[in-house]
Amino acid sequence: MALDQRADDQRAGSTAPTSTIAGAARLFDYWAIAYRRTWKGSAISSFVTPLLYVLAMGVLLGGFIKGDPTRLEGATSYLAFVAPGMVAAQAMTTVFGEVTYPVMGMIKWHKAYFGMTATPLSVPAVVLAHLGFVLFRVGTTCAVFLLVMAPFGVFASVTGVVAAFFVQLLIGLAFATPIYAFSAGLKDESAFSLVFRLGMMPLFLFSGAFFPITNLDPWMAALARATPLWHGVDLTRMLTLDRLDWSMVAVHVAYLAVLALAGWFWAVRRLSRRMIS
Protein backbone atom coordinates (compact mmCIF):
# COMPACT_ATOMS: atom_id res chain seq x y z
CA MET A 1 0.00 0.00 0.00
CA ALA A 2 2.84 2.32 0.90
CA LEU A 3 4.33 1.68 -2.51
CA ASP A 4 1.06 2.48 -4.28
CA GLN A 5 0.80 5.64 -2.25
CA ARG A 6 4.24 6.73 -3.35
CA ALA A 7 3.44 6.00 -6.96
CA ASP A 8 0.33 8.16 -6.63
CA ASP A 9 2.31 11.04 -5.22
CA GLN A 10 4.92 10.76 -7.91
CA ARG A 11 2.58 11.07 -10.81
CA ALA A 12 0.66 13.92 -9.22
CA GLY A 13 -0.02 16.39 -11.98
CA SER A 14 0.34 14.06 -14.92
CA THR A 15 -3.19 13.84 -16.24
CA ALA A 16 -5.30 13.48 -19.34
CA PRO A 17 -6.60 16.88 -20.49
CA THR A 18 -10.30 17.47 -19.88
CA SER A 19 -10.99 18.76 -23.39
CA THR A 20 -9.43 19.32 -26.80
CA ILE A 21 -8.94 22.98 -25.96
CA ALA A 22 -7.26 22.13 -22.65
CA GLY A 23 -5.02 19.72 -24.54
CA ALA A 24 -4.12 22.32 -27.15
CA ALA A 25 -3.32 24.78 -24.37
CA ARG A 26 -0.61 22.41 -23.16
CA LEU A 27 1.10 22.87 -26.51
CA PHE A 28 1.33 26.63 -26.04
CA ASP A 29 4.87 26.46 -24.63
CA TYR A 30 6.02 24.30 -27.52
CA TRP A 31 4.83 26.78 -30.13
CA ALA A 32 6.06 29.76 -28.15
CA ILE A 33 9.55 28.26 -27.83
CA ALA A 34 9.60 27.17 -31.47
CA TYR A 35 8.55 30.66 -32.54
CA ARG A 36 11.15 32.37 -30.36
CA ARG A 37 13.70 30.73 -32.64
CA THR A 38 12.37 32.25 -35.85
CA TRP A 39 10.50 35.37 -34.83
CA LYS A 40 13.13 37.89 -35.92
CA GLY A 41 13.10 36.78 -39.52
CA SER A 42 9.35 36.58 -39.69
CA ALA A 43 8.86 39.90 -37.90
CA ILE A 44 11.12 41.72 -40.35
CA SER A 45 9.52 40.16 -43.38
CA SER A 46 6.03 40.85 -42.12
CA PHE A 47 6.94 44.53 -41.84
CA VAL A 48 8.94 44.87 -45.03
CA THR A 49 6.63 42.87 -47.28
CA PRO A 50 3.64 45.22 -46.96
CA LEU A 51 5.89 48.26 -47.46
CA LEU A 52 7.25 46.83 -50.70
CA TYR A 53 3.79 45.91 -51.91
CA VAL A 54 2.31 49.28 -51.11
CA LEU A 55 5.17 51.07 -52.84
CA ALA A 56 5.27 48.89 -55.93
CA MET A 57 1.63 48.08 -56.51
CA GLY A 58 -0.14 50.91 -54.78
CA VAL A 59 2.00 53.95 -55.32
CA LEU A 60 4.11 53.23 -58.40
CA LEU A 61 1.77 51.01 -60.42
CA GLY A 62 -1.26 52.81 -59.01
CA GLY A 63 0.15 56.08 -60.37
CA PHE A 64 -0.72 54.87 -63.86
CA ILE A 65 -4.26 53.97 -62.93
CA LYS A 66 -6.90 56.62 -62.82
CA GLY A 67 -9.04 56.18 -59.74
CA ASP A 68 -12.56 56.02 -61.12
CA PRO A 69 -14.76 55.03 -58.15
CA THR A 70 -17.38 53.40 -60.39
CA ARG A 71 -14.79 51.06 -61.84
CA LEU A 72 -12.89 50.38 -58.61
CA GLU A 73 -15.77 49.10 -56.48
CA GLY A 74 -16.11 52.48 -54.84
CA ALA A 75 -12.43 53.07 -54.00
CA THR A 76 -11.27 56.63 -54.56
CA SER A 77 -7.78 55.58 -55.59
CA TYR A 78 -6.12 52.43 -56.85
CA LEU A 79 -4.15 52.30 -53.62
CA ALA A 80 -7.37 52.26 -51.59
CA PHE A 81 -8.68 49.54 -53.89
CA VAL A 82 -5.63 47.32 -53.77
CA ALA A 83 -4.77 47.70 -50.07
CA PRO A 84 -7.53 45.43 -48.70
CA GLY A 85 -6.87 42.98 -51.51
CA MET A 86 -3.22 42.77 -50.55
CA VAL A 87 -4.03 42.25 -46.86
CA ALA A 88 -6.35 39.36 -47.65
CA ALA A 89 -3.83 37.87 -50.09
CA GLN A 90 -1.18 38.20 -47.39
CA ALA A 91 -3.39 36.27 -44.95
CA MET A 92 -3.66 33.53 -47.55
CA THR A 93 0.04 33.30 -48.43
CA THR A 94 1.01 33.24 -44.76
CA VAL A 95 -1.25 30.24 -44.31
CA PHE A 96 0.17 28.44 -47.34
CA GLY A 97 3.63 28.84 -45.85
CA GLU A 98 2.63 27.62 -42.41
CA VAL A 99 0.58 24.53 -43.17
CA THR A 100 2.45 22.88 -46.02
CA TYR A 101 6.13 22.07 -45.36
CA PRO A 102 5.88 22.64 -41.59
CA VAL A 103 3.05 20.11 -41.26
CA MET A 104 4.99 17.56 -43.26
CA GLY A 105 8.02 18.17 -41.06
CA MET A 106 6.02 17.48 -37.93
CA ILE A 107 4.85 14.17 -39.40
CA LYS A 108 7.67 12.96 -41.55
CA TRP A 109 10.95 14.72 -40.92
CA HIS A 110 11.45 15.45 -37.25
CA LYS A 111 8.25 13.60 -36.29
CA ALA A 112 7.41 15.95 -33.44
CA TYR A 113 3.72 15.02 -33.76
CA PHE A 114 4.57 11.44 -32.83
CA GLY A 115 6.19 12.70 -29.66
CA MET A 116 3.10 14.75 -28.86
CA THR A 117 0.57 11.97 -29.42
CA ALA A 118 2.58 9.55 -27.28
CA THR A 119 1.49 11.73 -24.35
CA PRO A 120 -2.07 12.29 -23.11
CA LEU A 121 -2.60 14.74 -25.99
CA SER A 122 -5.05 13.73 -28.71
CA VAL A 123 -4.80 14.29 -32.44
CA PRO A 124 -7.50 17.03 -32.42
CA ALA A 125 -5.57 18.85 -29.68
CA VAL A 126 -2.41 18.69 -31.76
CA VAL A 127 -4.23 20.04 -34.84
CA LEU A 128 -5.94 22.77 -32.84
CA ALA A 129 -2.68 23.97 -31.33
CA HIS A 130 -0.98 24.08 -34.71
CA LEU A 131 -3.90 26.03 -36.17
CA GLY A 132 -3.75 28.35 -33.18
CA PHE A 133 -0.15 29.11 -34.07
CA VAL A 134 -1.09 29.66 -37.73
CA LEU A 135 -3.77 32.12 -36.64
CA PHE A 136 -1.24 33.91 -34.48
CA ARG A 137 1.03 34.25 -37.51
CA VAL A 138 -1.83 35.47 -39.70
CA GLY A 139 -2.94 37.86 -36.98
CA THR A 140 0.46 39.46 -36.43
CA THR A 141 1.31 39.66 -40.14
CA CYS A 142 -2.01 41.23 -41.08
CA ALA A 143 -2.04 43.59 -38.10
CA VAL A 144 1.35 44.92 -39.19
CA PHE A 145 0.16 45.15 -42.78
CA LEU A 146 -2.88 47.19 -41.77
CA LEU A 147 -0.81 49.45 -39.53
CA VAL A 148 1.76 50.09 -42.25
CA MET A 149 -0.97 51.07 -44.70
CA ALA A 150 -2.98 53.22 -42.36
CA PRO A 151 -0.86 56.39 -42.89
CA PHE A 152 -1.56 56.20 -46.64
CA GLY A 153 -5.13 57.18 -45.92
CA VAL A 154 -6.68 54.14 -47.52
CA PHE A 155 -9.11 53.21 -44.74
CA ALA A 156 -12.50 54.83 -44.38
CA SER A 157 -13.04 54.11 -40.67
CA VAL A 158 -11.34 52.65 -37.64
CA THR A 159 -14.22 50.26 -36.96
CA GLY A 160 -13.93 49.01 -40.51
CA VAL A 161 -10.23 48.29 -40.14
CA VAL A 162 -10.71 46.50 -36.82
CA ALA A 163 -13.48 44.39 -38.36
CA ALA A 164 -11.23 43.77 -41.37
CA PHE A 165 -8.53 42.49 -39.02
CA PHE A 166 -10.86 39.83 -37.62
CA VAL A 167 -11.93 38.94 -41.13
CA GLN A 168 -8.27 38.12 -41.87
CA LEU A 169 -8.34 35.55 -39.08
CA LEU A 170 -11.42 33.99 -40.65
CA ILE A 171 -9.77 33.96 -44.07
CA GLY A 172 -6.72 32.40 -42.45
CA LEU A 173 -8.78 29.61 -40.92
CA ALA A 174 -10.72 29.00 -44.11
CA PHE A 175 -7.45 28.34 -45.91
CA ALA A 176 -5.60 26.72 -43.04
CA THR A 177 -7.88 23.80 -42.24
CA PRO A 178 -8.29 22.36 -45.76
CA ILE A 179 -4.65 22.87 -46.74
CA TYR A 180 -3.59 21.39 -43.42
CA ALA A 181 -5.76 18.38 -44.17
CA PHE A 182 -4.20 18.06 -47.61
CA SER A 183 -0.67 18.24 -46.18
CA ALA A 184 -1.44 15.81 -43.34
CA GLY A 185 -2.20 13.00 -45.76
CA LEU A 186 0.63 13.66 -48.17
CA LYS A 187 3.42 11.08 -48.43
CA ASP A 188 6.09 13.37 -49.88
CA GLU A 189 6.64 17.04 -50.45
CA SER A 190 6.80 17.12 -54.24
CA ALA A 191 3.10 18.08 -54.48
CA PHE A 192 3.72 21.28 -52.57
CA SER A 193 5.44 23.09 -55.41
CA LEU A 194 2.36 22.40 -57.53
CA VAL A 195 0.14 23.67 -54.74
CA PHE A 196 2.09 26.91 -54.69
CA ARG A 197 2.31 27.37 -58.44
CA LEU A 198 -1.08 26.11 -59.55
CA GLY A 199 -3.03 26.81 -56.38
CA MET A 200 -1.72 29.81 -54.57
CA MET A 201 -0.41 31.91 -57.46
CA PRO A 202 -3.61 31.90 -59.59
CA LEU A 203 -5.68 32.59 -56.48
CA PHE A 204 -3.35 35.43 -55.60
CA LEU A 205 -3.53 37.00 -59.06
CA PHE A 206 -7.12 36.40 -60.15
CA SER A 207 -9.28 36.65 -57.05
CA GLY A 208 -9.97 40.35 -57.25
CA ALA A 209 -7.11 41.51 -55.09
CA PHE A 210 -5.41 43.56 -57.80
CA PHE A 211 -8.24 44.33 -60.24
CA PRO A 212 -12.02 44.06 -60.14
CA ILE A 213 -13.11 40.61 -61.25
CA THR A 214 -15.66 42.25 -63.54
CA ASN A 215 -12.65 42.84 -65.81
CA LEU A 216 -12.48 39.09 -66.36
CA ASP A 217 -14.47 37.11 -68.93
CA PRO A 218 -17.85 36.19 -67.46
CA TRP A 219 -16.89 32.54 -66.97
CA MET A 220 -13.60 33.47 -65.33
CA ALA A 221 -15.37 35.97 -63.13
CA ALA A 222 -17.78 33.23 -62.05
CA LEU A 223 -14.82 31.00 -61.28
CA ALA A 224 -13.17 33.76 -59.28
CA ARG A 225 -16.37 34.28 -57.30
CA ALA A 226 -16.23 30.64 -56.24
CA THR A 227 -12.78 30.97 -54.65
CA PRO A 228 -12.34 31.60 -50.96
CA LEU A 229 -9.87 34.39 -51.56
CA TRP A 230 -12.41 36.40 -53.56
CA HIS A 231 -14.89 36.12 -50.68
CA GLY A 232 -12.18 37.26 -48.32
CA VAL A 233 -11.01 40.12 -50.53
CA ASP A 234 -14.52 41.39 -51.18
CA LEU A 235 -15.42 41.26 -47.50
CA THR A 236 -12.21 43.02 -46.48
CA ARG A 237 -12.69 45.69 -49.13
CA MET A 238 -16.28 46.39 -48.11
CA LEU A 239 -15.04 46.96 -44.58
CA THR A 240 -12.05 49.17 -45.35
CA LEU A 241 -13.99 51.27 -47.85
CA ASP A 242 -17.01 51.33 -45.56
CA ARG A 243 -19.41 50.28 -48.34
CA LEU A 244 -21.22 47.42 -46.71
CA ASP A 245 -23.74 45.20 -48.41
CA TRP A 246 -24.99 43.18 -45.46
CA SER A 247 -26.41 40.33 -47.51
CA MET A 248 -23.03 39.89 -49.18
CA VAL A 249 -21.31 40.14 -45.79
CA ALA A 250 -23.46 37.24 -44.63
CA VAL A 251 -22.63 35.21 -47.74
CA HIS A 252 -18.89 35.81 -47.35
CA VAL A 253 -18.81 35.01 -43.65
CA ALA A 254 -20.91 31.88 -44.13
CA TYR A 255 -18.74 30.67 -47.03
CA LEU A 256 -15.50 31.14 -45.12
CA ALA A 257 -16.88 29.68 -41.89
CA VAL A 258 -18.23 26.57 -43.60
CA LEU A 259 -14.95 26.03 -45.40
CA ALA A 260 -13.00 26.41 -42.16
CA LEU A 261 -15.26 23.99 -40.33
CA ALA A 262 -15.36 21.36 -43.06
CA GLY A 263 -11.58 21.62 -43.34
CA TRP A 264 -11.25 21.12 -39.59
CA PHE A 265 -13.04 17.77 -39.65
CA TRP A 266 -11.12 16.72 -42.71
CA ALA A 267 -7.82 17.71 -41.11
CA VAL A 268 -8.49 15.78 -37.91
CA ARG A 269 -9.51 12.74 -39.92
CA ARG A 270 -6.49 12.80 -42.20
CA LEU A 271 -4.01 13.32 -39.39
CA SER A 272 -5.64 10.63 -37.24
CA ARG A 273 -5.30 8.18 -40.06
CA ARG A 274 -1.65 9.09 -40.40
CA MET A 275 -0.79 8.96 -36.71
CA ILE A 276 -2.88 6.04 -35.47
CA SER A 277 -2.36 2.75 -37.25
Binding site: G13, S14, T15, P17, R26, L27, F28, D29, Y30, I33, A34, R37, H110, K111, A112, F114, G115, M116, A118, T119, P120, L121
Partner: peptide, 25 residues
Protein backbone atom coordinates in the same frame (compact mmCIF):
# COMPACT_ATOMS: atom_id res chain seq x y z
CA UNK B 1 10.19 5.02 -29.35
CA UNK B 2 12.47 3.20 -31.72
CA UNK B 3 13.01 6.32 -33.82
CA UNK B 4 13.79 9.53 -32.00
CA UNK B 5 10.95 12.04 -32.21
CA UNK B 6 12.90 14.88 -30.64
CA UNK B 7 12.58 18.38 -32.01
CA UNK B 8 16.04 18.78 -33.47
CA UNK B 9 15.85 22.56 -33.68
CA UNK B 10 15.15 23.02 -29.99
CA UNK B 11 17.70 22.78 -27.21
CA UNK B 12 18.07 19.72 -25.04
CA UNK B 13 16.44 21.51 -22.13
CA UNK B 14 13.55 22.85 -24.19
CA UNK B 15 12.79 19.40 -25.56
CA UNK B 16 12.32 18.09 -22.05
CA UNK B 17 10.49 21.18 -20.87
CA UNK B 18 7.83 21.25 -23.59
CA UNK B 19 7.31 17.51 -23.20
CA UNK B 20 6.65 17.88 -19.49
CA UNK B 21 4.03 20.49 -20.33
CA UNK B 22 2.18 17.99 -22.56
CA UNK B 23 1.44 16.01 -19.41
CA UNK B 24 -0.18 19.02 -17.80
CA UNK B 25 2.59 19.49 -15.25
Amino acid sequence: PQEDTLDTELTVRDNLYVYGRYFGL
